[in-house]
Design a protein around this nucleic acid. Structure first.
Length: 874
RNA sequence: GGGAGUUUAGCUCAGUUGGUUUAGAGCAUCUGCCUUACAAGCAGAGGGUCGGGGGUUCGAGCCCCUCAACUCCCA
């Protein structure tokens, strides 16, 4: 069979994706094996996978594939979430383009459009997951708005309400005027912005000459002012006790109140109090029993209550108010001012603090066990405890969770209102009606109406690890009992509160069991300049484009090799290129071995191949143990680096060269078989990282009944460290001699004669054949005395004489040896200073002192060897 | 304003309880090679005193204090 010159990534990907699927390798059912369960963090149906997802899914696939090869029953559940705000706003925009106004549709009609939209665009992410090579169980695709899932969310709402953990109340909440919905605290992102501070004059009622100046960043809220607040000890305002001032533009008379809350150094030390539009003002308002005047509409325009500029957007109104104040001579000055503004994570609009009646989850009781689960070690966070402090801080200071959203796309809140506004919570209208009948025996279905709002998406996704196995709707089902708790959760550190902490709460509340044993947080993917990836910067590459260009294996390699555990990843396409080069390397190793298979087998001298094989065997076992340990610590990037170097350097550059027969000669059968076996093990180890090329090469290396992805990975065994040391010696000698050849401008084809002066020729015996071949020596002999006229190299106490067919540069040789000698003298000196220090000899551990003594002896021996070599050169 | 983290070669990072020689890797750089697996390659080489300062210790990249810069989280 003729192998193509290069690896065809696209062809291999297509072939293996369908073969894996056909053979149902990734479909899991409960059996007697230990389960290894992973639930995908469900991507948002509206989007496409970005580089952050790519990193995330790759990490999960590596863990899942490896677990599968270790004989565990691996189950990876794919899915997506309905992302209520983001999806609804996209659907609304889509309808608008069609000329349809959402408000003219019934709820049911709207949901039909939304589901159509989800079917059309939701599939894209699944295609991407597949193209990336993810070994998910496609029979288990879950969606947070599936029927059973919807039912689960309702069930949990009703249950928490009945337990007193959900309540409805009027609070100051974060309002998104663009999406026109409430947001939870976690959905608000704060950014520093340059704003203006306006100094506005409020005249005293009883004395037109007297006034108080207030600094405000939001002049458009003046119309909602109900008081001016100053510090009780502020000498500037003592005369205003019990007085009233006039609110500009609307001429309302409001009291001057006194409260120690005021920071006297800020602005003028006087605060205008607008309880409807600022959380702090709201609290002051409650304390001082002030009226609340809400001057804004839900869409961020000024309401009737504002009296002026009604209907204008808040930012437009701000300009108008400032203009008007200026005209009235009430604006003293304007100064620029650094402030922080809250932005909606979903719509990007500036969040408006607003008093609103919403549904909340009481968090305190749920938070406590969730904190314990992590602090007491039931759940381990990786890497290290980097996120422990953050997690703890949030849970110890947790605030109630606003879960209602003024949207249609989501689970509708199962609350029903009677004719008098009384409230009942029940899963169905029938059940609610029954509850109402206790007080209203004659009540009819038409008398009650359901709450219009839906629940926060996170109120559904916090049930994800349970409900994908129907753990809420059918808690006793055997699948749930088998797969839950899941093994590892891999996610971004940015959703530690939104999602991770809440899943832990839900798991402990409903199953009295943690949802996962390990949490692995990946960093954020940035561009190579360290900037966040964003659409506006245009620095976010298209995943499918990258896969088409480099192949999925190279993309996975590139993203993993540059992804230190938990750290942000600076994404650079050159790492993908490195991945492609690695593909090429693997492919060529295959080609070489295939070539050997085709040459006629003969009896050949195997003195060199025996050592090479034994050495590589030991090296392989050593690396396997290292990789095993690194993966247990979730150090996936380092494990890949180890593997990369094992394959490229140890296997290709050293081992294959050592066993490579001379041109035209055949390889010994046993060596060939061993080589294939080593290669297979390497492919197995690499498979979780680069699934396609490893499958392809594995299938070409021999006849297979099963694919590589379900082959069993043998655990690491003991290895002979003596062999490894000999291998190191051999590599060192080869490198040094090659270096000397280079320095003397020898062409690769020019041969040398090599003489080794050593007191332990035994250790060289198994190495000589390889050594001779690798440094192109026509002759290799041991000698007991110095040989003149040669290039001299020393390694430890051994000397190597290289006889060349040309004049050697004696001065350069001498200079080289002298610099080494100088190095040794300096080193010896530093060791002797240490050993000369009595306190060191007394205090340091005996083995440390012993080690220093050995260093001293080694250095002395090296110095002697070097001096002798110098003497030979004359 | 509060908290967490980071700072080691040009770049990205390792460096486990302080002592295995004068700190490692990959990429990049430089030199020499078109050697029939691979120029998407091969063979070599150079490069850092571990952010600054102080301290503890026989001994500090690692522990303590302090300053600085950057990142993130929270208010």
């Amino acid at each position: 069979m003729e192998l193509s010159k290069t690896f065809d990534a696209a062809a291999a990907a297509g072939k293996w994706t369908s073969l894996w699927k056909e053979r149902r390798y990734f479909n899991s059912t409960p059996d007697s094996r230990t389960p290894f369960t992973v639930v995908i963090p469900p991507p948002n149906v509206t989007g496409v996978l970005h580089m952050g997802h790519t990193l995330n899914e790759t990490v999960q696939d590596i863990l899942v594939r490896r677990a599968r090869m270790q004989g565990l029953n691996a189950c990876w559940v794919p899915g997506s979430d309905h992302a209520s705000i983001a999806t609804e706003s996209k659907v609304v925009a889509m309808l608008k383009e069609k000329g349809i106004d959402k408000n003219t549709l019934s709820r049911a009609e709207f949901l039909e459009y939304a589901f159509q939209w989800k079917e059309k665009y939701g599939g894209i992410i699944y295609q991407q997951i597949e193209k990336l090579g993810c070994s998910v169980d496609w029979d288990r695709v879950s969606f947070t708005m599936d029927d059973h899932y919807y039912e689960a969310v309702i069930k949990v709402f009703v249950d928490l309400y009945n337990k007193g953990l959900i309540y409805r109340g009027a609070r100051m909440i974060n309002w998104d005027p663009a999406a026109q919905t409430a947001l939870s605290d976690e959905e608000v992102e704060y950014k520093d912005v340059q704003g203006n501070l306006y100094y506005v004059r409020y005249q005293a009622v009883d004395n037109p000459e007297d006034y108080i100046t207030v600094a405000t960043s939001r002049p458009e809220t003046i119309m909602g002012d109900v008081a001016i607040c100053v510090h009780p000890d502020d000498p500037r305002y003592q005369h205003l006790k019990g007085k009233k001032v006039i609110v500009p533009l609307v001429n309302r008379q409001v009291p001057v109140i006194f409260d120690t809350y005021i920071d006297r150094s800020f602005g003028t030390g006087a605060l205008k109090v607008t309880p409807a539009h600022d959380i702090n003002d709201y609290n002051i308002g409650i304390k001082h029993h002030l009226e609340v005047i809400d001057t804004l509409n839900p869409d961020g325009t000024l309401s009737e209550a504002a009296q002026i500029f009604v209907g204008l957007d808040r930012f437009v109104a701000r300009k108008k108010v400032v203009q008007q104040l200026q005209q009235n001579g009430l604006l003293i000055k304007e100064e620029s001012y650094e402030t922080r503004l809250g932005y909606s994570q979903r719509s990007g609009a500036v969040v408006e603090p607003r008093i609103s009646t919403q549904w909340f989850v009481k968090m305190e009781q749920l938070a406590e066990p969730a904190l314990k689960a992590v602090t007491q070690g039931a759940i381990k966070i990786h890497p290290g405890n980097r996120f422990m402090a953050t997690y703890r801080h949030w849970l110890e200071n947790v605030k109630d969770w606003c879960i209602s959203r003024q949207l249609w796309w989501g689970q509708q809140i199962p609350a029903w209102y009677g004719p008098d506004g009384s409230l009942q919570v029940a899963a169905t209208k029938e059940a609610a009606l029954e509850l109402f009948k206790a007080n209203y025996p004659d009540i009819q279905p038409g008398d009650i109406r359901r709450d219009e709002d839906v629940l926060d998406t996170w109120f559904s996704s916090w049930l994800w690890p349970m409900e994908v196995f129907k753990g809420i709707t059918e808690p006793e089902n055997p699948e749930f009992k088998y797969y839950y708790p899941t093994s590892v959760l891999v996610t971004g550190q940015d959703i530690i509160f939104f999602w991770v902490a809440r899943m832990i709460m839900a798991g402990l509340e409903y199953e009295q069991e943690i949802p996962f044993k390990d949490v692995y947080f990946t960093g954020m993917v940035r561009d190579k300049l360290g900037r966040k990836m964003s659409k506006s910067l245009g620095n976010s590459p298209d995943l499918i484009g990258l896969i088409d260009q480099y192949g999925a294996d190279a993309v996975r390699f590139g993203i993993m090799i540059s992804s230190p555990a938990g750290n942000d990843l600076l994404f650079d396409e050159s790492s993908l290129e490195q991945g492609r080069f690695f593909n090429n390397k693997l492919w060529n190793a295959l080609k070489l071995i295939k070539m050997w298979e085709q040459t006629e087998a003969t009896e050949v001298d195997h003195s060199s191949t025996d050592f090479a094989g034994n050495w590589f065997q030991a090296r392989l076992e050593q690396a396997k143990a290292e990789i095993q340990q690194l993966l247990e610590q979730f150090r996936l990037s380092e494990a890949l680096k180890t593997l990369y170097s094992l394959i490229w350097d140890d296997f290709c550059s050293w081992y294959l060269e050592w066993v490579k027969p001379a041109y035209g000669q055949a390889i010994e059968q046993k060596t060939l078989q061993n080589t294939i076996a080593y290669f297979e093990q390497l492919l197995q180890l690499l498979h979780p990282y680069m699934p396609f090329i490893t499958e392809e090469i594995y299938s070409l290396l021999g006849e297979r009944s099963e694919a590589l992805c379900v082959s069993t990975l043998a655990p690491a065994t003991d290895f002979d460290s003596e062999l490894l040391a000999q291998g190191e010696l051999l590599k060192n000698v080869i490198t040094q001699i090659r270096d000397a050849r280079g320095k003397n401008n020898l062409k690769p084809k020019e041969t040398i004669k090599l003489f080794i002066e050593t007191t332990s020729s035994g250790k060289y015996e198994p190495l000589t054949a390889i050594l001779q071949k690798q440094v192109n020596a026509e002759e290799l002999k041991f000698t007991s005395e110095a040989i003149t006229g040669c290039v001299v190299i020393t390694l430890q106490q051994d000397k190597y004489y290289l006889e060349l067919n040309q004049q050697i540069d004696v001065e350069a040789q001498k200079a080289d040896l002298k610099s080494q000698l100088e190095y040794q003298h300096k080193f010896l000196n530093s060791v002797r200073v240490k050993l000369g220090n009595e306190r060191f000899v007394q205090n340091a551990k005996p083995e440390v002192v012993e080690l220093e003594r050995k260093k001293e002896a080694d250095a002395l021996a090296r110095i002697q060897t070097l001096e002798e070599s110098l003497a030979v050169l004359g």
